[in-house]
Every structure is written in C-alpha cells, then in structure tokens.
Design a protein around this nucleic acid. Structure first.
Lengths: 334, 334
DNA sequence: CTGAAAGCGCTTACAG
DNA sequence: CTGAAAGCGCTTACAG
C-alpha cells in the first residue's frame, strides 16, 4: 500500500537549478521565463517523471479542475440510456479543456443535503444539473458565485445558463405528423408532468389542436411518467374509453413501446388502426417492430452544449441559453 | 463571480474558544475531545454555516475522497445503458461511504496517456476500470500502490481485485436451453472477442457442444462486436450458409434483436423455426416482440460489488474476486 | 525575467 | 484530553 514517493517542485527546482517559482511558471505556461531555463525545467520534469500534485495546486490557486455533474434522481435514471449519453457528451468536452467530471447521482432534495454540502465545500469549480426537480439549490449556489449549467429548462426564471431540446417544437411535429397521416383523434401520454420537458411537449400537442380549431376530447390527455408500464396502462384506458382513437403521441419512446405492446396484444394494428409516435429516437425505436416513428433529439450534442456553456462561464464570458432542434424520424409505426 | 468568503478553522476555533487542532478532531470524529468543548465546536460550525474545505483537507491528509471510474472506450459505450447502470451502482456505494465518483470516459490507450497522468497525479484515492482493453496501465498503477478494482475479468493474471458476471455459466445456460427446447443446430454470435466476457460466453457455448458429443459445424461460430448491425449481418450469413439453423445464441440482447429483425424480415418464424437467446436482460429484451429469452446479469449489483471491493481495499482489507451468478429468463423467443 | 517569502486551510505527530 | 507548531505541495503578489 505504501505509495511511491513522488518528486515535488523542490526537487525539480534543484535539478534544473532554478527557483520553485520558476518551475511553477514553466509548468503553467507562463512564457516570460527565459527559454534556456524553461528547457532545463522540462528536462528535469521528464527525467524524474514528475506529475504535478493537483490537490496542492488546487489549494494554492483556488481552482480544482473538477466539475460536478449532478443527476437529481435515483439509480433508475441510468436504466434509461438518455442521461448516460448526455454525461458522456459533457465529459468529453470537459476533458478536452483539462477538466474532470465528478458524477453525483442522488436526489438533491433540499438545498442543504449531502450534494449541497459537497458543492459548497469548494471541491468543484462548477456544477451541471440534470433532471432538476426544484430550483432551490440552484438559486443558493448561484448566490455563492458557483458557475452553473442546467440541462433542461429551469422551473423559475432566474437567469441561470441552460441547454435544452426544443420540446415544444418536437411535441408539435409529432402531433402534426399524426394528423397529416390522417389521424383524427390523437391522444397524448405525457411524461412526468413535474418536468418542464413533459409540459412543453404537451404544449406542442395542444398547439396543433388549437390550430386545427378543435379541442382534445376529455381523456385523450393521459399523465404518464416516462416508464414502459405507464405507456401500457394508459393505452389500455385509452382504448377502453375511446375505441376510436387513431393516433397516440407518447412523450418518450419507452412509453410508446408500452402502448404499442398493448395494442398489439389486443390485436389492434399499428399503424393500420392506430398510429404511434414516440420521442427521443433511442435504440428501442430502431429495434421495435413495427419500427417506431419518433422525434429525434441530439443527446450527445446536448451534453456537449452543457460542457461548452460551463467552459465559457469559467472563462468569464456571458452565456445565453441553448435550445437544440429536433427531427421527425418517420418509420413504420406512423 | 466573487465567491463569498467562507469561514475557516481559525474562525471556528476562535468562536468556540478552542484550538484549531481541537476543531479538526471534533470534525473528524475523534472522540477523545471533552464533550463540552465538542459541543461548542459544533455550535460554532452550525452558527457560521461552516463547510470543511475538502481540498485543504486532502492536501494535509493525503486522502482526496475521490475514486475514479475509468471507462476504457469512447462515447459509444454510453448508448448501451449497461455501463451507465454499473456506474450508478458504484456511485451509490461510494457516496454511502463519503466518497465521490470521478468519471472518465476515454480510450485508455497507453500507460502514459491523459487518463494515466491524472490517476498518477494523486487526485484520486483509487480507480475502478470498466471494459479494459489492456492490463498495461493497471500493472503500472498497481506498482504505485493505488487501490484498483476491475469490472470484468482481467486479461493477464496479476492479482488485482475484480468483479464479473459468470459469463461462462451464462453462455452455458443459454446454449443448454436452446438444445433442451429441441434445437439441433445452434449458432453463436459472439461479442467483441477481444473482451474476456465474449470469450467466456463462447466457452460456455462450446462446453455444451462438448458434453453433447458433437462439434459445432463450420460457420456456426460468428464473431460479432455487440452491435445491432453485427447481429443483423451474421444472421444473414448464417441463414445463407446454414438454412437449417434452428437456434441462435447472441452474446448480448442487442445482437439478438438484430438477428431477430433479419429473421422476421425473411419471414422466418421465431421461435417456430429458429429459437433466439440473448444476454443481459436489458430493456429491449422485455419490449421486443416476441419478447426475448435471455440471460440476466445483475448489473447494479456488479457496480455495487465493485464499489464494495474498493471500500474494503481502502480499509486495508484483503479482497477476493467476486463472480455474480446469472439467471436464464425464459420469454417467447426460445 | 527571477527569487524569497507568505499563504492556501487543513492534519498530525509531539509534548505536556 | 489539549495546544503550538510544522508541514502537505503548490501559487502569487512583491520587489528587484
């Protein structure tokens, strides 16, 4: 267990015959150092296999090089590849800029829980939030001057940087496509309505109805929770209450799959009798039979945008929210 | 941007009228401090909203409270929810023990790349590796005394701690099930054969053949790479070369889905004509039609086991490799 | 362009 | 049970 003793500035300075201050300057890219002395430092570093101690560096400089990615939820969130993909996009951008990603998967709960403690303890230079259920912690951290980025639209309108998919546009496009295909009675199974994304997708759906001069019949708007099971349950209820439903827009692919499985088990043809559109364009949309028509969002780009906004803030730049466009991907189900 | 100045030990010590050493003892749970003085410290901490500076603590103590999770691959790894789920298991166990997860998604490549530099820079107390393509870096880090855990069986037999699924047993059970169902000519589509998991699943398949006194016909063993597309390609080739194949064991669900989609498109009944078994029991196995018979591995448990092995090592305990059992989940496809 | 020195905020033998 | 003091390994005004 005894770690091998590693060299420090003192050793490098002695070997290169310069002061520690000069070592520090060279290693931090200060180009005011005389080239010859810089060369000697680099030589010593090379020869001794020196690695800077980032903890000491962090304490002295006040910068840790660590960015927290906080997923405000429990483990279940990762069974959906969505957040994993976003995280990988974030992580890639941060690493390119010499920053590391600290992953925290935990219900954020209050503004004083374990996550909050950690973020306030000075160990990270910034924090990126996913699936935020409340803005309380964000507001608090913002006051402390911690650079923040939210993935998804914030609930309140404090001016925090955020990135999001055009959920309204996606919901609109999905519903419009169903109607264009000839569906007259289109239902929606929403996601967890506590999330702004679910609300915005619903708004897109309602907008299409509004433009068509109609109002969705009672019972056509079903509050799901993004799970396969909730897709199944609501599809069953829908068919029972509205046997003439001919279009279903589910706010994610998983619920769409749940709905399709129920329809198929009941012998109802998709898309012949009922057309189904999902949201996300995840893997299951491609592998489904019939393949699922869905709204694609660029999840990696979402993560990269979040990382980029963080970098910009660390560089003291002003940042604007980023909203990424969606694409309708037409397959067999609608 | 100006962060609010936070109180330090000096302030707490003054407020509680004790020394900084005593503050440190109280905050680190040293119970040798007189209860009354400890109470005063806690009071001061509470009153001033004190948060320990973890960076300073790390420099002085040599422990950072950070564990690296290194995924030796590119972004694509996260489109498979597998690693996201493992990571969440790891992260939960670590957080319960006051440790944070630093996520690094990057091809590890050499023993001297960016990831290697970081791991050697003293910023983490240990490292957990996923999907390791080579043991070079592990060997190097082991020499430096960094606590390590590998998820998956290591390639060489240095005695590093690892956790893995019983891939051999799973491959055996899948193939045995196909034969028990009456399949005579069973093919396998393996995963990336550079991974030990893929090799072990293949070994399980071969063992069943061995016990049956037969040898798989030439062309029944197809080298896939875990992707949907490779499942499709190999299924096509298989049917062309062996029209009488009646069982396919794919080394993950995704390839099984690829194979099934090809069979269905060719009008070949699953499971009537060809039975198909996958591996993982991921979401798509449940949502597939016909639902996919597969080998379940407990992915969250795998992550938790990795986290637990890390904690044990940090506590100076000796650790043994952990192999988790698999379950055959019989659904409609076989 | 360069170095001496103070300092970042904790931890930990050591002596009592 | 407690405190004074040294130290962790860097960074950064400051003075030259």
């Amino acid at each position: 267990m005894a770690p091998i003793a590693r060299p420090t500035y003192a050793v490098i300075a002695r070997t290169a015959n310069v002061s520690e201050a000069t070592v520090s300057r060279v290693l931090n890219g200060d180009d005011s150092v005389h080239p010859e002395r810089a060369r000697r430092v680099h030589e010593a570093v090379e020869k001794l296999g020196y690695k800077k101690n980032r903890v000491a560096s962090a304490l002295a400089s006040g910068r840790t090089g660590l960015i927290a990615v906080v997923i405000d939820d429990d483990l279940s969130v990762f069974s959906d590849p969505f957040w994993g993909t976003v995280t990988s996009g974030v992580s890639r951008v941060l690493m390119e800029n010499g920053l590391q990603t600290v992953l925290m998967v935990s219900p954020v709960g209050s503004a004083d829980g374990g996550v909050a403690q950690y973020l306030k303890s000075g160990e990270v230079d910034g924090a990126i939030f996913f699936a935020l259920h409340s803005d309380a912690l964000v507001t608090k951290l913002q006051k402390q001057g911690l650079p923040l980025v939210i993935t998804g639209t914030p609930h309140s309108s404090n001016d925090v940087a955020f990135v999001d998919t055009d959920n309204f546009g996606g919901g609109y496009a999905a519903t419009r496509h169903l109607m264009n295909q000839g569906a007259k009675k289109v239902a929606i199974i929403t996601g967890d309505i506590g999330t702004t994304a679910a609300k915005q997708r619903l708004d897109g759906y309602l907008q299409v109805y509004r433009e068509s001069g109609h109002v969705p019949a009672k019972g056509l708007i079903c509050e799901g929770d993004y799970s396969f099971e909730s897709g199944q349950q609501h599809a069953k209820k829908l068919i029972a209450a509205h046997p003439d439903v001919d279009g279903i827009f589910a706010s994610n692919d998983l619920m769409a799959m749940g709905a399709m499985s129920v329809l198929q088990d009941m012998g109802i043809d998709v898309p012949g009798k009922v057309r189904v559109v999902g949201f996300d364009d995840s893997l299951i949309a491609q592998t489904a039979r019939p393949a699922l028509t869905t709204i694609r969002q660029d999840v990696v780009a979402l993560g990269e945008a979040a990382g980029t906004l963080m970098i910009a803030q660390l560089n003291g730049q002003d940042v604007e929210p980023v909203i990424l466009p969606t694409d309708l991907v037409v397959r067999a189900s609608a």
